[in-house]
Write a protein that binds this DNA or RNA. Structure first.
Length: 295
DNA sequence: GGTTCACATTCTTGGACATG
DNA sequence: CATGTCCAAGAATGTGAACC
């Protein structure tokens, strides 16, 4: 404990100038290669997701400095053309633009392609997926889109406006509803779903089932997820036991599997078959409309 | 006992500054 | 010159301590 290394580590964990060893040229080069490899495997992904894949593989330390280093090197790789721009996505910024078309033909073509009949109107139950972060939503949306399920990223503590809207939506379902939550396991993370649940019920959601899908203690031990001690400065830390594990520590494919299982157990297969037949017929109608256009 | 303040969470990037 | 740390923005929440 009184060793220089111990003190350096302690200083590095708190704040102040750099006290960790500097990476050699060879190490930087290796890290660059690993960034490209990991990005190639999981693309498209956010910078944060890329960082977590590297942490899980123990290629980089789970520190602010580690994140910064990955950010810097990834930026360089993209600018130099060694890493395709499309592999890294930024889900936090988006374009606002009115939809417009070259003509009715393109409009009907898009409509036909994008048209989805509401699967859940004919299902006996109702399901939503909730998550803590936009980053988690980026992973889960592939599944929720496929099943037409609402996906709600809270972005930290959900806003009153957002949670009030959730309560209203749940109340209007008039059938058994289940909400599944994906979030970090840390003092605040554990409190976010607790707080959201409390608000939604208070705002008059009616009865519904709530399940925290991830991150659970069992997943941490079963899958050897990398964790860190809680931040002492977090006011909720004193009643918190065990390591802090962020959702990104779980493989994206595994998260999607969990999400798919949550949804599919509520699907009535007869209603699903009928739904598919209706949707197909409606798409054919749209196609006939397009073909009947003049010119 | 209620209000205010500091600091914590969600996400991302980049600048300032310190250090080796 | 490379790297590490802190801070900034945006908006909304939570806890706990200090204050009136």
């Amino acid at each position: 404990m009184d060793s220089t290394e111990g003190r350096l580590k302690q200083r590095a964990e708190s704040c102040g100038p750099r006290f960790t060893k500097r990476r050699t040229k060879a190490e930087v080069s290796l890290l660059r290669q690993r960034i490209v490899n990991v990005a190639a495997t999981y693309q498209p992904l956010t910078l944060r997701q890329l960082f977590y894949r590297l942490v899980v593989r123990k290629h980089i330390q789970k520190t602010e400095a580690g994140y910064k280093a990955v950010g810097r090197l990834t930026g360089q790789l993209r600018e130099s053309g060694d890493l395709p721009w499309s592999w890294i996505v930024d889900s936090s910024r988006m374009v606002r633009q009115r939809a417009s078309y070259s003509g009715l033909g393109e409009f009907l073509e898009q409509t036909q392609r994008l048209y989805r009949r509401n699967l859940w109107q004919d299902q006996p139950e109702y399901v939503e997926i909730w998550c803590e972060s936009e980053s988690a939503a980026g992973v889960l949306c592939a599944i929720t889109y496929e099943w037409g399920v609402p996906l709600r990223p809270f972005k930290g503590y959900g806003s009153r406006t957002f949670l009030y809207e959730v309560a209203r939506t749940l109340r209007e379902q008039n059938k058994p509803a289940t909400c599944y939550y994906f979030g970090d396991r840390d003092p605040s993370g554990n409190d976010i779903d607790r707080s959201a649940l409390e608000s939604v019920r208070r705002y008059g959601s009616g009865e519904f089932r709530f399940v925290r899908v991830a991150v659970t203690e069992k997943q941490v031990s079963d899958w050897s997820l990398p964790g860190a001690p809680p931040k002492r400065t977090d006011s909720r830390a004193k009643n918190f036991r065990g390591p802090c594990v962020e959702l990104e520590a779980i493989e994206p494919d595994r998260l999607r599997d969990l999400c798919r299982d949550c949804i599919e157990q509520h699907i009535d297969s007869h209603a699903l078959e009928q739904h598919k037949r209706n949707e197909k017929a409606e798409r054919e109608t749209l196609n006939r409309m397009r073909e009947s256009l003049p010119g």
